[in-house]
Computed example of a mutant assay.
Amino acid sequence: MTTSISRPALSRRPAVARTGKGGRARAWATRAPLLPALVFLIAVTQLPFVATLVISLFDWNSLSPDKRHFTGLSNYASVVTDPALRDSVITTVVLTVAVVLVTVVLGLLFALLLDRTFFGRGMVRTLLITPFLIVPISAALLWKHALYNPEYGLLNGALTWVGDLFGIESMSQPDWISGMPLLAVEAALVWQWTPFMMLILLAGLQSRPAEMMEAARLDGASSWQTFRYLTLPHLRRYLELGVLLGSVYIVQNFDAVFTITSGGLGTANLPYTIYETFYRAHEYGLASAAGVVVVIGTMIIATFALRVVSSLFREEANRA
């Protein structure tokens, strides 16, 4: 009896082993087409970052290449103590917080508008999305020349029209960029990134359970009560995602600052200061250290964003 049981058991072991090897082979066959893309991704992202990390440990000025030497973490200490870099960090924080908060509020208002049914909603949605589709450098040029120009810009043209309408002959024609430089950059970024927030929040609004909203309506809840106690809690994850992704993009923004103000008048954020340090001052080590700081900060924000996205996917899967 013992022999008759053990023989089939022994005969099954090679089959299991063969199945395991076949499964691994099929898994590698499935992953093989992705290997070139993975190698390319590592070559264009990770290797340059490693090179930047190594350069950040050296005192390296391209105008004096023979004087290059290893300095350890001194460049990172300079990033913290250098007044220009410290001011650029503060400017980056102020710019990011202001733009993200305003875009979230405006995006929520537009999302609530598009969540309703009305004639021409498709056209309105297309027009509201358009600023996000424009190339960032083109959007910055549009604001600098078409709106902010003190001689032929639309803003001063509107002020002149209002002055003529009310009989005010000496209507002031402000220079928007020199008069309010940081606000000018923030307005251009708000115009461009509000559609991004709107799309995220609109997706959240359209994912609300219809039964819950219908029950609230039948119970006599007002529009404000429905928004406060049902819609807003449901949008919490989407608001977090919008804030985190918006922060990742705005922290790295270079186009608007470079195009509108060229980093002057206190608008130089950290990416622009890195550009100045690298290409103007030729301080490769210091610029690399500042770049590593930006990348680490962005990765921290992106980690929180990925967690929010994962939680959204889990909630949708559980709901389904």
Score class of each variant (00 low, 15 high):
M1A: 11
M1P: 09
T3C: 06
S6F: 13
S6G: 12
R7L: 06
A9G: 10
A9M: 09
R13E: 12
R13K: 12
P14E: 12
P14C: 12
A15L: 15
G20I: 04
R24G: 13
A27L: 12
F40V: 10
L41E: 15
A43R: 10
Q46C: 13
L47H: 14
P48D: 11
V50T: 10
A51M: 15
V54A: 13
S56G: 03
L57Q: 02
D59V: 07
S62D: 08
H69F: 06
H69I: 14
L73Y: 12
Y76G: 12
V79T: 05
V79D: 01
T81A: 14
A84I: 12
D87W: 05
T92E: 02
V94A: 10
L95I: 10
A98P: 04
A98Q: 09
V100Q: 02
V100N: 01
L101M: 05
L101T: 05
T103P: 05
L106W: 09
G107T: 06
F110E: 07
L112R: 15
L114H: 03
D115Y: 05
R116H: 08
V124D: 02
T130C: 09
P131L: 01
L133W: 12
I134K: 08
I134R: 08
A140L: 06
L141P: 01
H145P: 00
A146E: 00
Y148I: 00
N149Y: 00
E151C: 07
L155E: 00
A158V: 03
A158R: 02
T160Q: 07
W161A: 12
M171H: 13
Q173P: 06
Q173I: 06
P174I: 03
P174D: 05
W176Q: 01
P181I: 05
L182Y: 04
V185P: 01
L189M: 15
V190D: 00
W191K: 06
M198Q: 07
G204F: 03
P209G: 08
P209I: 07
M213P: 04
A215T: 14
A216F: 04
R217F: 06
G220F: 04
S222H: 09
W224K: 06
T226C: 13
R228V: 06
Y229H: 15
L235F: 02
R237W: 12
E240H: 15
L241C: 11
V243N: 05
Q252H: 09
N253W: 01
D255K: 07
A256S: 10
V257C: 02
F258P: 05
I260R: 00
G264K: 12
G266W: 04
T267W: 01
L270R: 02
Y272G: 10
F278A: 08
F278L: 13
Y284I: 11
G285L: 04
L286W: 00
A287Q: 00
S288I: 01
S288T: 01
G291E: 02
G291Y: 02
G291L: 03
T298H: 04
T298G: 06
A302Q: 13
T303L: 13
R307E: 11
L312H: 02
A317W: 11
N318G: 10
A320N: 11
A320V: 07
